[in-house]
Design a protein around this nucleic acid. Structure first.
Lengths: 180, 180, 180, 180
DNA sequence: GATGAATGAGGCTTCATTCAT
DNA sequence: TATGAATGAAGCCTCATTCAT
């Protein structure tokens, strides 16, 4: 049982417990028990509960959701479809779905997590807009659209709404905006 | 200081505190202090914290969001625009916005609130579909669309995304579905 | 609904609730609810919870248990049998049984009830000894025997032990002690 | 200050406090204070107040009262005398006396303690009957007698009634029942 | 007589965190 | 690395009691 695997066992347990019970309601003790270690050890690895939350949040950061699509060098509608699929796939995992919502909730009350979330909603989406619309320099409205796409996707993926409706809708948008 | 006004002062304080800190993090004591009453009185009026949360949740129930539109006897695109406006107006209030997110979060971990939320996503939206699409009997797909509209609107209104993009997008949808 | 009947309804409710839940665990509110009156009214009639307890205790005072036998002008074994029957009859009522135990318990921690109980175990039993043993002046040992009889009876009646065993046992005692 | 001694200090403090104030009226805080530890530590060792009560109850369980007699391999009248002495010795300790009464009281309202108490009044006494009456197989009536003896002893020991009266009385019973 | 409204005190429990080993 | 022991803060809730009407 190497140091690393212990740390990761804790992290995994934290992910599951946080998803299941929320960041506040899941106690360090419960996480430790699930990971099969002592409470104290959690603090040894992550300093405090907030540190643990931060690490968990990193693991479900939005940039991770669309990573697969980025590597495939897609653009336009194909990229869009890939993204839709990625969102749906990612949020089909109950743990991810719940963590995302808990994170959204947490970001409302704790500034440091608000920041993380913003970075996700801003930096990431500008980059995405460029590749979606095949533009080197995106305008404000382009980003707004991508933000909307992201918000829409997240909510609908989380709610498991019909994927095809979303795709159709987005295609119409791209028709009016993209250059490729 | 009539009974009713006291109860409402507590409820108002609860709304604000719950919005600001979340349902779990906001304590009954804080709410009582904000309302200028004793902790005990909160329990006198609402039995327990959960009872208080329930009352607050009722106040931000989705049916309340679109109430204005229902009274106006609108249908089709006009109704849709009204709804968009209602969502945006409702969620332009920070308290409502935050409460909605906290509720979404809460519904993940506490079944009774999950139920409330489901009723909102189901019963209410079926009714809405009828009036949106001018159909007496809506099909499964119609409801799916309205569900998507709701999810989209909520997320985007909450994120203050550009309203006009949403409207345009929705109009296109209606073009393909509605009968009026 | 005359004043008296209200008072008695409260008293009756108190008896039942105290028996069921114990003096501490039964709250004034529960008693009031059972009596169909407001909490405040209980305080109006009985000043405070302790006052209410006192009244209830009076109603189950030991002197009441053997009252029937005293009126019958019995003595010796006949009186003893009557007393045994009285104890068993009294404690066959679940409310009485439980109240007696709760009272015993209460008398351990609250001095004023301890006093009440002592009076029961002393004054009353001296009188009883005289009539049981047909003596005008009872000795210390006589009273000790009656005290033992009382304790034995109470415990055994409460536990619903076999009545005839008790009677036989007591008769043997009387054989050695009584003068009639 | 080893772990064990801390746990036992808490247990001892609990015994004393429970005896003095009753199981309900004695608060965990008071017990902790008396033990010289923090409230939380009590919960660490005993999970909750009920767990603490259970441990205390075990310590005054009836089987413990007559343990000394069992080891001595006595039977008949000698065993009986030993038991009488044990009861009187045990209940001469004020803490034990009060705990027994509080337990009796508690068993009226909390089922799990009722059970404990029943086991005491049943299992234990059957075994005792065999050795008291020198019978391999005891009849219903034998057990009834022993139950009566127990109830009588407990009540009288608790009330510090004259021991010799009890002994004499019991001897007469044995004369009629025992085989040795 | 009777009630609704209001309070302060106190109780149980959970939790994040730390310290000694 | 890892744990058991210990703590203080904070939270929910119950209760007896009082006050105004």
């Amino acid at each position: 049982m190497s140091a690393k695997s212990t740390r990761e066992r804790i992290l995994e347990a934290a992910k599951v417990m946080f998803a299941e019970r929320g960041f506040d309601r899941a106690s360090v003790e419960q996480i430790a028990k699930k990971a099969g270690v002592s409470k104290t050890l959690v603090f040894w690895y992550f300093k405090n509960k907030e540190g643990l939350i931060e690490e968990v949040v990193k693991e479900v950061a939005p940039s991770k959701i669309i990573q697969a699509c980025k590597n495939k060098d897609l653009k336009g509608k194909e990229l869009l479809d890939c993204i839709v699929e990625s969102y749906y796939k990612f949020f089909s995992d109950d743990v991810n779905k719940k963590l995302a919502i808990h994170l959204l909730d947490l970001s409302l009350t704790k500034p440091q997590f608000k920041e993380m979330y913003e970075r996700y909603c801003d930096e990431e989406l500008v980059e995405l807009a460029k590749r979606l619309f095949c533009k080197d320099h995106v305008e404000k409205k382009d980003v707004a659209i991508v933000r909307m796409i992201h918000g829409t996707l997240m909510c609908n993926a989380i709610n498991s709404e019909d994927k095809s409706i979303i795709k159709d809708m987005f295609h119409e948008i791209l028709n009016n905006t993209m250059r490729c």
